[in-house]
Amino acid sequence: MKHSFIIKLTIISMSFAMMSDSVVVPLVSQIFATYPEASAFSQNFIISGTALMMTMVSLLSGKLAQHFSKKDLLIVGFSLFAIAGIVSGLVNNIVMLSVCRGLTGVAMGLISPLALGLISELYTDIKERSGIIGVYNGMMAAFGAAMSIAAGYIAVTNWQAAFFINAIAIPVLILTIVFLPRTPPEKQVNHDSIKVDAPIREKIPALKLTAISVSAFFMNTLYCVIFYCIALYITDRNLGDSSVIGILSSLGTLGSFSIGMIFSVIYMRTKRFSPTIFFILLAASYFVLSLPVGIIPVGLACVVGGACYGMSYSYYIVEISEVMPAHAVSIGMAIITSVIGVSMFLAPYVISVYESIFNLHSISETFLYIAITLLTCGTLSLILSLRERKLLITSSLE
């Protein structure tokens, strides 16, 4: 079924919500300086607490999509996002800021799995769907880059005002209300002329879903370390101020944007070997960051790392849309979104964990150990992919 350009534009514009944390990344050092009395948990919650809330609500949104139209749920999500995001720039104490950030995460938890589920519902051809998901992810990165750069420059004079960037939710809300088709709840959807709430349903492939989720957890957790901690890394290395941090953050999202625009082509060629590629390339990026290099190699490492993240995000979403039965697509998207949310929430704590286990004393040393971890993941992925290909070849010959 063909869908109009304005519907595609509306769906793709929703991707900005997942990049709300791009506004916060350049502000980390200033938030810590403004609230030095706050506990480490409170400080980290402002940075990645949205991911924790998104995780919990994502699972609920998948269930809600069984009973309510995705359009109605998305309207609620963007309304909440606009209010919480804008109010974040008006409050002047850490408790209220934490509450607003938490509500922003609730909105993200509603929006992300529903938008991705809508793509799977409206675009059934794998090539077209992977293309839309790639563009969705690419534009998510583009939004993130623009938001990060803008926040970095605004933060030079007033870091709280950077939160007003979240007002972009208002035009997206209007597009959703006016142009998005009202699809029926998933329990009422027919798939290939068979009602999904019929007595016989295709079972959810638990093993495949688990494998995809575990891979996504490690990839996202380790990538988000540099995403969230780029400000601490730049400050520790004395490479620049908040404007430089904003630019470097945007380079990562530039890499994601670039890979998203061509993801469909890459995916159709690499498929099961995609995880091996992005794990190993991200390991190389962290290895560069562990060295005493200048701003240009750091920038290149950020671009490559962002491209790896963009490729991995699109890959996991496409894989979920492929393995999940029609009646459970939103549930699958909710699960993978929750996994990504958990990994984003845990990412700021990874440095402390590595420092404690390996007795490390600098963020650069930690990045070397993260590179080794990623290389191990890439090697395991290659072994499993080769094993899967061998099994497929063997079964085809029988």
Rank of each mutant, 00 (worst) to 15 (best):
S13C: 01
N44E: 15
F45P: 08
A51M: 12
S61D: 07
K63Y: 14
F68N: 12
D72A: 09
I75F: 14
F78W: 05
F78C: 02
I86V: 13
G89S: 06
G102Y: 13
G105K: 13
L110N: 08
I119G: 09
I119N: 09
Y136M: 02
Y136V: 02
G144F: 05
S148Y: 04
A150S: 15
I154T: 01
N166W: 10
I170S: 04
I177H: 02
I177M: 11
T183E: 09
Q188L: 10
D192P: 00
S193M: 08
I194T: 14
K195W: 11
K208S: 15
I226K: 00
A231F: 01
D241G: 07
G246I: 07
T253I: 11
F263P: 14
S274E: 06
T276F: 12
F279I: 06
L282M: 14
A283Q: 01
G294F: 09
G294I: 10
I317R: 01
I320W: 07
A326C: 08
A328T: 09
V329S: 11
M333E: 04
I335W: 01
I335R: 09
S338W: 04
V350T: 08
S352T: 13
S352V: 10
L360R: 06
F367H: 07
L374K: 06
C377K: 00
